[in-house]
Design a protein around this nucleic acid. Structure first.
Lengths: 332, 332
DNA sequence: TCTATTGATTAGAGCGCTCTAATCTTGTAA
DNA sequence: TTACAAGATTAGAGCGCTCTAATCAATAGA
């Protein structure tokens, strides 16, 4: 289990440790002959540089911290995939934590990440107070994903929920729907923007917004539909629903079908997030897609710009979502 | 961005660096008075020990490497959650990679993990050849999840696919089904065990196994059902299906319903994995649950036993799955 | 009063690397 | 032949910590 060090390689190749160091960082100022000898010795010994020792000596880290609130949520998992791909491409490694949507656990997780003296940290939809984030930002660059910030010291990457919701309303209105309800995301971080976009788009079409309180779960989607069914005559029922997210949409569809209403013949339903769920042919849900991999990529990019000192002004990426039309929406 | 060091804390508290070190590792041999002074100085300066420097000096790492083939798969994401929880509890941090089911990318990812000189490494369903894994195992303890190994140097954590499939057959046979088909998982690592368990359980009940080639996707599930429908008269069609996984089951249900067959009235369907998908009330899929969080916990446990030198014999955890009965199965 | 003894504190080396500055080789010009 | 520049190589300090062994202070026993 004890791995060879640079010193071992140097001894074997008959050169100094410093020369080995140069070769390992492929410095141009090494003769081809020595380089070959060092590389050969390293290969034979199975030598790989020790990242931590390197970080300590060079005073530069190739580690990026990532705190994700909940990996079970495929949205976050996919953003992490994007982060990983971009980080690997840039020669960085991720150290990853989960905070479980608990402020105290998130604090501990963040502290843990910072104790690595990372080059930067990405926070995925954190719930800690802004002050905790700003404190962290004094230690290294911070990028927030799916959370906004006013601090000029942190960058943010979000999808444009207003635009996404508007896209959905546009689609439904274009299909001839007039009574389009929105199942609200409640306390979710993304809910406000989606609600606002929905309301504005509705008014823009001269339509009356109808916001039904709900949550980002399938269960809540069912409940919301039950409430709608209880409050309106069949003839006055909304003919289209914009759910808070895909799960919510699936719950809504469930409840509609149980009540004998067909989707999309009687009621059209649009989700949000384009999770793998939505793509299932069994559901084939029309939904709003967030470019998750791209969000991960942009987060790393923003981080590295700060790391390299190329930028000190904050950047606010607001990504444009797109509508994925499947089988749960139809013309009125 | 330049953080205080132990030396700074020592100066501020008027003690030596060594004493600060003792306090940070809460050694008992420090007077209460000095301890308080050091803690106070650390607090004022916002000092946190530098994990990497600590690792280097102590020659012990608190880092565990994790390579996951694909985070998009919620199964893996949930195992990672389990890994993270157990690691955090033990005071370890995870450095995480994805290998994308490509041997070359996995090799690079593994190398990257090892360059941190981690205390141990967890490989989630890796596709690299066994030799690569055994090479890695010479550098630090390795635990494989969802992959078997004959090497005595690595530990493994798997769910007992045979038992899981048998559980499903048991359930269906108990409901009076005689013609139970299995939609095979094809090349997936877990497919063989599930198939074998299915076949044995069928024979145990004096029933004839019927394995239909498929894959772990919803699309393949649809296709498999279409083939069944093409090969059998309605009267001879299997009355129950054990799918390779939940996605596959959803595809199968889709195709059955399109063909005018009701689930579970005409055909019962059982999935495998108990993904969040299965729990959706809209699907409410009867399925076999793998204890994913537990798998993560056991992987960390096995790793730490090796790290602490408590064990040198390999351990092969074969976790017992359980059946979650929902609404896609009914009595014949 | 002096010496053990115990507990608290610290000096200093070293973990595996990088980086600056110094040293050693050549080749070339005078 | 000598001098010197340019390129190749190395010595050695130091990154922020841990750990062993040594030192120091205080108390107890003779």
């Amino acid at each position: 289990m004890v791995r060879p060090t640079m010193e071992d390689v140097a001894a074997k190749a008959g050169v100094s440790r410093a020369l080995v160091s140069l070769v390992m960082r492929n410095s141009p100022k090494v003769s081809d002959q020595r380089r070959a000898a060092v590389l050969e010795a390293a290969r034979e010994l199975g030598y790989e540089p020790h990242v931590m020792a390197r970080a300590l000596a060079s005073r530069t880290s190739t580690v990026l911290g990532v705190m994700v609130s909940d990996l079970r949520n495929t949205f976050f998992a996919e953003v992490v995939e994007g982060l990983d791909a971009a980080a690997q491409a840039a020669g960085f490694d991720l150290i990853l934590n989960t905070g479980g949507r608990s402020p105290s656990r998130e604090r501990a997780a963040l502290r843990s990440l910072l104790s690595f003296r990372p080059a930067g940290v990405v926070l995925l939809s954190p719930v800690v107070p802004a002050s905790a984030i700003e404190d962290a930002a004094r230690q290294c660059p911070i990028v927030l994903v799916s959370r906004t910030s006013r601090a000029s010291i942190v960058d943010t990457v979000n999808d444009d929920g207003e635009a996404g919701a508007a896209l959905a309303v546009e689609h439904l209105a274009g299909l001839g729907h007039r009574r389009i309800a929105h199942l609200d995301g409640g306390g979710a971080a993304t809910a406000a923007a989606r609600r606002k976009g929905y309301q504005q788009a509705m008014r823009g079409h001269g339509l009356e917004p109808l916001v039904v309180p709900s949550e980002h779960t399938d269960h809540a989607g069912e409940k919301a539909v039950h409430e709608l069914l209880g409050s309106y005559d069949r003839a006055e029922l909304p003919t289209a629903l914009l759910a808070g997210n895909d799960f919510n949409a699936v719950g809504a569809i469930s409840a509609l079908e149980e009540a004998g209403l067909r989707v999309p013949e009687d009621v059209s339903v649009v989700g949000y997030d384009n999770t793998s769920l939505a793509a299932l042919r069994h559901l084939s849900l029309t939904t709003v897609d967030q470019p998750r991999t791209e969000m991960g990529r942009l987060a790393i990019e923003a981080l590295l710009e700060r790391v390299r000192g190329e930028r000190t002004e904050p950047v606010r990426h607001l990504l444009h979502p797109s509508l994925v039309v499947r089988s749960t929406t139809a013309a009125r």
